[in-house]
Amino acid sequence: MELTLNVNGREWRGDVPGRLILADLLRDRLHLTGTHLGCEQGVCGACTVLVDGEAVRSCLMLALQADGCSIRTVESLAPDGQLSRIQAAFLRHRALQCGFCTPGFLMSITELLDSGQRYNREELAEMLSGNVCRCTGYEPILDAVLECQD
């Protein structure tokens, strides 16, 4: 079926099977491999992208469900190779080790930061519980987000 998306500010049109999952479209056909696939069943959050500004799990959506939507992947954060504020904060606070979960965290955090709402440490821990990180213990990630809310 015909599918039209805006991905990271550029229009993409293509013919896709109904059963193609959004995460696989992004990785296999658009070669946006920054979106990581961990559990592929909605648990780990590594595949989080923004659909019309809202953080969703791209493994839990058919590509066709995003027809006509604007998608942002982690690649949109540093279009000219300059780290964004949150990416720089991640680096500074050592908020990643292996980095597998990082794209998902960055996109979930992007929705939170873009909302303009401020969260305290406890609230952020709750909001980020949908992204699984097995390296950092979350504390440096919370530090990085708190810094970017200022």
Partner: peptide, 16 residues
């Protein structure tokens, strides 16, 4: 694998 990517679900006819 279909042209251009992995598909996970079994085939179905999609209605919208």
């Amino acid at each position: 694998t279909e042209a251009g990517g992995t598909v996970k679900p079994a085939p179905f006819e999609y209605h919208r």
